[in-house]
Design a protein around this nucleic acid. Structure first.
Lengths: 202, 202
DNA sequence: CCTACCGATCGGTAGG
DNA sequence: CCTACCGATCGGTAGG
């Protein structure tokens, strides 16, 4: 018979993840101690080290999960509609919706990726690269001339990701501008520029 | 006679700033100890606390200086040329040039702003807001319809800053794409969008 | 899954 | 009575 595991193994682990994510996002990874996490969740520091190897492993776990969710959502968006413009709109909306529902993890991905050891970081970066490639392929469909400018493929895709990832600095999903509304604005700006976007219906 | 100060007071202080900046950018503010900084510079930890009140004050000093330089450079760019398009190009180039020459400080501004105490952070944020306002005013000149959409003024300006600030994640000024070349690409993308930018001369 | 601890190191400051 | 530092160590806390 296989070794048994407590019925609530998964839930306990998740509670640790949740408490850690909250504190990592609020104070930063380095500034958060294992004792802080234990205090937040009302469990012992030793419990954390029963479920995770290290503080870094918790962060790795959080970022990995978030990137997987992003890849699934983005991949799904690419099947919504035939026109590349429609697919781009769905692609950007998928990002903003996930950023809204998983704001904490998104903040960690942006701010604390460097806290990971080199090997773990490169695993995350590899997943990010797949996402950037999906965007770049879509852009090449939208502006075929981009295919002749291989050197600008990546800078262009990163300019796009800058627009939407930078939202972690200033955007609050509970404000007047909904995730979809910002997604559409960003989409229009990226496709048509300032003068192709304004005037626009309010 | 006024109280005297060592002739090399300024230089010593600058050496501490430089060593701290390098380590803060490489390892993160929290992960860098005063002892690390002292070790890097070959001086005592006590020397640091003779010149600075705290580790935070060093970071504050670095970010304040960087923001001031950015404000001066950006302000200067707004006087280069009559057409708003020309001024925007100079504005973006000024940013990218400063990011290239002060890459370390730029990284700190993006990654370590939260390490500052609330009061110090808000002083930096206030300066950033002035910069964002300069950009937003320029955009309203370029697309007058934006003036009727007050709610989109800030999101639009932040989308722009996303494109250029996100470079700290992926852009290396010593690569094949020069700071001015990327500035022009970002400028074209923001003004004309994907289809207004490509095809373009290599 | 806890209390009880460890080796080491933290940011900051003492006397001289 | 000042500025410019040094070697040594403070009280607490880190991850494990």
């Amino acid at each position: 018979m296989a070794r048994t595991r407590a019925d609530d193994y998964g839930e306990k682990q998740q509670r640790i993840r949740d408490c850690a994510a909250e504190l990592f996002a609020a104070r930063g990874f380095e500034a958060t101690s294992a004792a802080d996490i234990a205090g937040e969740g009302g469990f012992s520091k030793a419990l954390i080290y029963h479920y995770f190897e290290s503080k870094e492993e918790i962060l790795q776990d959080l970022l990995e999960t978030h990137m997987d969710a992003l890849l699934v959502a983005a991949q799904g968006a690419l099947h919504e509609g035939d026109e590349p413009r429609t697919r781009l709109r769905a692609f950007v909306r998928a990002h903003m919706r996930l950023y809204a529902t998983s704001r904490t993890k998104h903040l960690l991905l942006i701010n604390e990726l460097d806290a990971l050891p080199a090997k773990g970081k490169s695993a995350i970066v590899a997943k990010q690269r797949r996402l950037v490639d999906m965007a770049a392929d879509l852009f090449a469909e939208l502006a075929p001339a981009l295919k002749q400018q291989a050197a600008l493929r990546f800078p262009t895709a990163m300019s796009f990701y800058g627009m939407i990832n930078w939202t972690c600095i200033w955007y609050r999903p509970d404000g007047t501008l909904s995730p979809d509304a910002f997604a559409d604005l960003a989409c229009d700006l990226f496709l048509g520029g300032l003068n192709g976007t304004f005037p626009r219906r309010a």
